[in-house]
């Protein structure tokens, strides 16, 4: 009998293999998802050592609970949910202000919107072109680290990982409207942060 959510995805076959006790199945799962989980943690926590520990915790938690994974969502979604929770817990645990990233101030004041806004330039100045020449990945990571953690993980899940509003709302246990407004504010903040580049 085929479980829901395991329609031909090789990674789900790995989950089945893990459940049946196939040797090496979990190692294959880790290999398949470690980059995605680790980079999500690194962008959330802005600290590679913390991200390493968090990613390890995510896979350990998955190993303990994979038997209860019902396959309603993709395994990657499930893993990223665990990662988001772990990262938010870690961010909450950071007690001293010095350890916290400076929260991004309320991004819009309507008054200064016009001053900061820069219309998109020509093709050569377009952000995705600049990514190739100006190590846009690094710039984006830095910009992300300046968002407040409560919005950052939503941007990561939505724009980097492709989660829907509803999925994020379920994960954050907030209404969909809250997700929409937070995402919007965070994206506009990102736009402002990147506008000198764009």
């Amino acid at each position: 009998m085929e479980r829901p959510g395991v329609k031909g995805r090789p990674v789900d076959l790995l989950v089945e293999g893990f459940r049946k006790g196939t040797p090496g199945a979990f190692e294959a799962i880790v290999r398949a998802h470690q980059d995605r989980v680790y980079s999500f943690c690194a962008r959330m926590l802005s600290d590679r050592e913390d991200a390493f520990d968090a990613a390890q915790e995510v896979f350990l938690s998955a190993w303990r609970n994979l038997a209860e994974f019902r396959g309603e969502a993709a395994l990657s979604t499930w893993l990223l949910r665990i990662a988001a929770n772990r990262c938010l817990n870690r961010i909450r645990r950071r007690k001293s202000l010095s350890e916290r990233e400076a929260p991004w101030p309320e991004p819009f004041g309507e008054a200064d919107e016009g001053l900061i806004f820069q219309p998109a330039g020509g093709e050569a100045d377009h952000p995705d072109r600049l990514a190739e020449t100006c190590e846009m990945g690094e710039i984006l990571t830095k910009a992300l680290s300046r968002l407040d953690p409560g919005s950052r993980w939503m941007v990561l899940l939505s724009d980097v990982e492709g989660f829907s509003y509803e999925e994020i709302a379920a994960l954050a246990e907030v209404p969909v409207g809250t997700v929409k407004s937070r995402l919007h504010r965070a994206r506009m903040a990102m736009r402002r942060l990147l506008s000198p580049v764009a």
Partner: peptide, 28 residues
Amino acid sequence: CAGSLRAVREVLRSLPPDPAPPELLPGI
């Protein structure tokens, strides 16, 4: 504004994952 917002989202979407450190898997 819409154009630059779209560009930011596209860039974020195309952000490649950072490769995990090689010691992550053995540690796990």
